[in-house]
């Protein structure tokens, strides 16, 4: 049996988990193609006009998988990754949305709710649906989950050591990239690592000799410590992680500036925005928002990143020179 996984949204965070899980259960895993103009165009055409671009991309990937004659398309419903904290409503309604957009897709969708205590989603009770639907035994499922968890933790450990997710997913010998200045990049995995949607942003940084740190490279406890500053956490787990990471970046001296990459119309990010803009100013940390959508042009991204980092470089080297002068 072939199971299709759309190369969008949480793919970038959980693919190692899902791949190991389904392969250990004896299924073939097929992913959709890399995001391309045609995938995006299909998504834009089929999805609701107002929705954010990551969701349009996802819709495009689902259709791409249908062309690959898979038996099931895996569309999990992420409900909660921490007690009392949810995900963006669009994630919680993702399978409903896909079912609503295409007639007769119901029996092609493999879905189940993910309600977990942490970002480790291997808890058995979430996957009991598979027993009937895929005809696997409890024991096999448990073993597969364990294997998947180990694989995912391995991936996350490397990730937290500073390897970016694209390196980890695409190459056997991942590389770390350094630079003369460091930018804290605040953004969801599907905005940061989807090369097509963000105009290969990470490569833009690399060419400019800039090191990038993202939220997925941060230890969870650091994020949680920062979040304690808030009386009330936000309702969306990944948004909380961005928020915690951003406050950590503001306090750290080795981060020279922060760039917030967000999709047009992203709801959670619109609530985060006042907190980041107001407090980065208080911390005197350079801050820029980079908004992407289906109409983003490459030169736009490059120009803005160049201008922002040029200013940071001027500031940094000027400061260093003054210090030398004093000595």
């Amino acid at each position: 049996m072939k199971i299709g996984i759309p190369k969008a949204l949480m793919y970038y965070f959980y693919y190692p988990f899902w791949k190991t899980l389904f392969e250990s259960l004896g299924f073939e895993v097929v992913t959709s193609d890399d995001t391309s103009k045609s995938i995006l165009d299909i998504g834009v055409k089929e999805a609701v006009a107002e929705i954010c671009v990551p969701m349009k991309v996802y819709t495009g990937h689902v259709l791409n998988l249908l062309d690959k004659s898979v038996d099931y398309i895996y569309i999990p419903r992420f409900v909660s990754l921490r007690k009392g904290i949810f995900m963006c409503p669009k994630f919680m309604g993702l399978p409903d949305m896909i079912k609503g957009l295409f007639d007769g897709i119901e029996n092609k969708i493999l879905t189940h709710n993910i309600v977990s205590k942490s970002t480790d989603i291997s808890e058995f009770h979430n996957y009991t649906v598979f027993i009937d639907k895929l005809g696997v035994s409890r024991k096999d499922l448990k073993n597969a989950l364990k294997k998947a968890r180990d694989k995912w933790l391995e991936f996350r450990t490397l990730n937290k050591q500073g390897y970016d997710i694209n390196e980890l997913l695409t190459s056997d010998k991942p590389k770390k990239y350094e630079g003369d200045i460091t930018i804290g990049l605040i953004g969801y995995v599907y905005n940061v690592y989807d090369r097509f949607v963000n105009m290969d942003l990470l490569n833009v940084f690399r060419k400019l000799n800039i090191k990038v740190v993202t939220f997925d490279m941060m230890e969870e406890r650091i994020i949680q410590r920062q979040l304690k500053k808030f009386k009330k956490n936000m309702f969306w787990e990944f948004t909380n992680m961005l928020l915690g990471t951003a406050y950590e970046f503001m306090e750290r001296d080795d981060i020279d500036g922060i760039i917030h990459i967000t999709a047009f119309g992203c709801g959670p990010d619109s609530i985060v925005e006042p907190f980041l803009t107001i407090d980065s100013e208080k911390h005197k940390k350079p801050f820029m928002t980079l908004r992407i959508d289906e109409q983003t042009g490459e030169s736009h991204v490059i120009t803005r990143v160049e201008a922002f980092t040029d200013l940071i470089r001027i500031k940094k080297y000027k400061a260093e020179k003054t210090v030398e002068g004093v000595i």
Binding site: E50, K90, M92, G93, G100, D103, G267, P268, S270
Partner: peptide
């Protein structure tokens, strides 16, 4: 409201109900 998160999901479903 423009960009409303939950209602965008209902809007995705509404087309199906109409059909």
């Amino acid at each position: 409201p423009f960009g409303c998160l939950p209602e965008l999901v209902s809007q995705s479903v509404i087309d199906k109900i109409m059909r």
